[in-house]
Structure formats: structure tokens, C-alpha cells
Nucleic acid binder design. Structure first.
Lengths: 110, 110
DNA sequence: GCCTATGTATAATG
DNA sequence: CATTATACATAGGC
């Protein structure tokens, strides 16, 4: 059928909650994949933490999140930063990190 | 003239140092861009830390790296409120989780 | 760094 | 969640 494929997406907040959640899931996987590729190709250490609107925490780390963040605290040599607004405050649960694994495992098909 | 464009890249460590550095720079920007798009479209908080081989730290954060990092530590403390005053780098669950995560990625060959 | 051909990520569908 | 068309990222070359 016609009208499939990707349309140009407006770079702004996705209002519809369901659509936003779908996009979040897809792009989060994509981001983690890109990060893992960067680790493999360039032998670097990477840590990514994402807090969703609902306050759930998703993480990616190579070799692991803590070692990278601890290393940052020691050197404290920040380079870039991007900011804007937003600052909701909910307390995420550690167990939600398991969801990150489940997603990865499913995507990978293991 | 001919032979331009992108060839399919093997997903492995780039041996040539100069080439690896170029790829690192390009992909790092791409990763940060993806992250900022994710923040804009889905209103989430993201923190990324990258340590290059040379030990230099690159970071991306929305609203900033430290707030996201602290939020993670806060959630960990809430989850493991047994004892200890320094949960960072000591939480067995998160550590094990990310170890598994890394192993999974390596097994897959990403 | 900029440019262009080509591979990849992904918005809409099914 | 699988597909597919298409926007986007990016390897190789200047």
C-alpha cells in the first residue's frame, strides 16, 4: 500500500502519549546500539543513563555504568553539555533497570 | 569522482589510529545529537559519559550530567536502604546487571 | 571541515 | 512485534 515508510518528523515534543512512548522505545534502543558500536570500533568507555517521564531509569554501560561515572567524579573534566528546561521529580526504582535488559535481550533474540 | 559514499563498515576495532579518531569524533557527535533529539521528542532526562582511549572525558547531559547521575544514586539509596553510606560502585544488583549487559553485547558482536 | 554515495535508523503500516 | 519506504547518519574522499 502507499504511504508507508518514514515521514519527516518534526523535532518537538510528541504530544500523544502512546506515540511518544513508541518513539521513546525505538530511539532508546537505537541510541544504545550506537553507543555499543562506538565502544567496539573505538575502544572507548561509555555510560548512558535515561530517566523517562514516568521516572523509570534505563542504563547502558561499557564496561559498566558505575566505573565510568566514578571515573568522571575523579577527573571532573567535563566537556560538553546541552540543556533546556524540564525537571520533574519522581523517584525511579532500581528494578526498572531490568527492563533495559529485557528489551535488549528481546531485540537481540537471545 | 567514483568510489565515494559509504562502504559497509566491519563492526570491529579500527586498528589505524587516525581513522579510529576520525570515526570516534563523527560518531560521538552523532550519538549526542540522537540523545538531544530523544530529550526533545520524549521529554526525558539523559546523561552520557564517554572516556576516550587517551582518557579524555566527553559528556552530554539534559538538563545536565550531574543531576541525572545524582538522581540515579538517589534511587539506588532508596532501593538499598540497608546500610552503608556510599552506594555508588557498590550496588551488587546494578553492577551485575551491567556486566551482563556488556557480555550480551559482546556475544552479539555489536 | 564540507560533500556525496550508500548504509542505517525509524515513522507508518500490517 | 515484522515490514517497508524514506529521512538521516556517516565512510571515504577532497
Amino acid at each position: 500500500m502507499p504511504n508507508m515508510g518514514r515521514k519527516k518528523t518534526q523535532m518537538e515534543l510528541i504530544e500523544t502519549e502512546s506515540a511518544r512512548h513508541v518513539t521513546f522505545s525505538k530511539r532508546r534502543s537505537g541510541l544504545f546500539k550506537k553507543a555499543s558500536e562506538l565502544c567496539t570500533m573505538c575502544a572507548v568507555e561509555v555510560a548512558i543513563i535515561i530517566f523517562s517521564i514516568g521516572g523509570k531509569a534505563f542504563s547502558f554501560g561499557h564496561p559498566n555504568v558505575h566505573s565510568v561515572f566514578n571515573r568522571l567524579r575523579c577527573s571532573e573534566n567535563l566537556d560538553a553539555s546541552t540543556s533546556s528546561n524540564d525537571a520533574a521529580g519522581q523517584d525511579p526504582i532500581l528494578h526498572d533497570l531490568n527492563k533495559t535488559h529485557s528489551d535488549l535481550i528481546e531485540d537481540v533474540g537471545l
